[in-house]
Each structure stands twice: as C-alpha cells, then as structure tokens.
Nucleic acid binder design. Structure first.
Length: 127
DNA sequence: ATTCTCACA
DNA sequence: TGTGAGCA
C-alpha cells in the first residue's frame, strides 16, 4: 500500500486542470501556494505541476474558507503537528483534565522556587 | 493556446 | 481577489 501514496504525491496536473477540479481561479491557487497551503512542483519551464494530494488540499482549503475561516487560521492547522493540534483543540474546546491542572500547577511551583533541572526525560519535558 | 510574474484606474 | 501587461 505504498505505491498508492507515491502516485497521490506525484505532480501530474497543470494549473488549468486543477482549476477545473477545484473550481478555484488560477489567482486563488497561486495565492494559496504563496501561503504555503500547497507545494506544487515546477517544470523546467517554471510551470506548476500539482499532485492529487495538492488537489485534495485545495479542496479542503476551499471548504474551510467557505466555513468562514481565514487563510492564517488554515495555515496554522497545517503547519502545526496533528498531535499538537488535537491537544490544543482539546484544551481550547473542552475542559482541562485534572492531570493538566496538576501538571500546570507543578510547573508553577517549580518556577516560583527557582528549581528547574531541565530534565527532558520527564513526561512534561523541560519545565 | 497556456501559464508565469508583477502591479494596481 | 480580479485583471491586464509582457514573457516564455
């Protein structure tokens, strides 16, 4: 199942094809590339070549934009690692777990006492 | 015919 | 984001 990913990532579409596939204007597609939402390869003559993944990404961007999100918000979603994303999401939408509260309190206590060995092996890493 | 970059009555 | 200019 690795051949499939290879093909999804191969750049084979011209901007014209992508325009039809996504209903986006060339201007928008180029702008989203500028915002690093997609990274089409370039041909020897400087033509953009998009992969299936790029098309999917553009379709997602299109939806998020339609849902009222701004480009910068979308940029953060892709630039941030998924794990961090989920954690950030949990903490911003749901409530902090008891473990979270204790961890934060512990950190504050250590900082207040000026004690910080910087043990990155601890679950919470360097405090 | 297409796409590219750049710039803005 | 749209649009037109001047290239490749």
């Amino acid at each position: 199942m690795k051949e499939k990913e290879l093909r999804r990532s191969m750049a084979v579409f011209t901007i014209g094809t992508v325009m039809q596939l996504t209903d986006l204007t060339a201007r928008q597609i180029r702008y989203y590339e500028e915002q690093e939402l997609v990274h089409p390869k370039r041909t020897d003559t400087n033509r953009r070549m998009f992969s299936l993944n790029d098309v999917d990404r553009l379709l997602e961007v299109k939806d998020y934009l339609a849902e009222g999100l701004n480009i910068t918000a979308i940029k953060r979603m892709y630039s941030t690692e998924r794990k961090e994303q989920e954690k950030a999401l949990e903490k911003s939408q749901k409530n902090l777990t008891d473990e979270d509260v204790r961890r934060i309190l512990y950190k504050e206590i250590l900082n207040a006492s000026g004690f910080n060995s910087g043990d990155s092996n601890k679950p919470w890493g360097r405090i």
